[in-house]
């Protein structure tokens, strides 16, 4: 146990983490590509047409995984930011910085695909309901984090300032997730939750989960490569 935890501490140093990140990133990138192909195949060729929405519902295979990632990456980013703030470890701040652009990207994808899904089904590109508004605030949080860090020249200070913003912004995550339960929204409730069986056909669910796994792998790969860049640029 003690030697194990020592080993992890050893990896927490940027110099030793660098080669490990390279190997991990390559594996995850391959996994992401394979999973995306499988997910898209299930989404377009195996999953049946939806009774209510016809083919328009197929946007779900990209919209829901992207929305999940947008929230999850923010939590991970805030976690690393908090660790960096509390223990003053160099790598933690780099992790938070590396996660932000990918998180912002998935937030934008969730909003974009949501608009393209809302138009044919709801009849509008955008409404200011609680779910959509809080997801837009998430995009601004990511962009604010990146802008703040870019505005401060000294990396360690940038990390600390960004960490405060990231930690305060975590409050938005439960608001996004529970908005459809707490308030009247145009956005429907969750089809998939831990509390009950998914309210969708099994193959539809499978397509969504595989796409989510692909986005996970993609995010890990991209973040690790970005951490490597940051290590090289800073050290």
């Amino acid at each position: 146990m003690s030697t194990d935890s020592l080993k992890w501490l050893w990896y927490a140093s940027p110099q030793t983490f660098y080669p490990l990140a390279g190997i991990l990133a390559r594996g995850c990138a391959v996994a992401a590509a394979v999973l995306a192909v499988i997910g898209l195949y299930i989404g377009f060729f195996v999953a049946p047409t939806d009774a209510q929405q016809g083919e328009a519902y197929r946007i779900i295979f990209i919209h829901v995984p992207a929305a999940w990632m947008s929230m999850f990456l923010y939590v991970v980013m805030a976690f690393w930011a908090a660790i960096g703030l509390a223990f003053n470890t160099r790598l933690s701040g780099m992790m938070a910085t590396a996660l932000a652009p990918t998180g912002a990207l998935f937030t934008f994808v969730a909003l974009w695909t949501g608009a393209l899904w809302g138009k044919p089904t709801w009849g509008t590109w955008w409404v200011w309901d609680a779910r959509l508004t809080s997801e837009l605030i998430l995009l601004f949080l990511y962009l604010g984090f990146m802008a703040l860090q870019a505005a401060i020249d000294e990396p360690r200070r940038a990390d600390r300032a960004g960490a405060v913003l990231a930690i305060v912004g975590v409050i938005n995550i439960p608001i996004i997730y529970y908005s459809v339960e707490w308030w009247n929204t145009l956005h429907q409730g969750a089809s998939v939750s831990l509390k009950s069986a998914p309210s969708m056909a099994a193959t539809m669910f499978a397509g969504m989960i595989v796409m989510a796994a692909a986005f996970w792998m993609y995010s890990i790969a991209v973040t690790l490569v970005r951490v490597r860049c940051i290590i090289l640029e800073r050290e």
Binding site: T49, G54, E55, A56, I62, W112, L116, W117, K119, P120
Partner: peptide, 10 residues
């Protein structure tokens, strides 16, 4: 099914 713009746009 007529939703090409929306699906492929996404």
């Amino acid at each position: 099914g007529g939703y090409a713009l929306y699906v492929w746009g996404s």
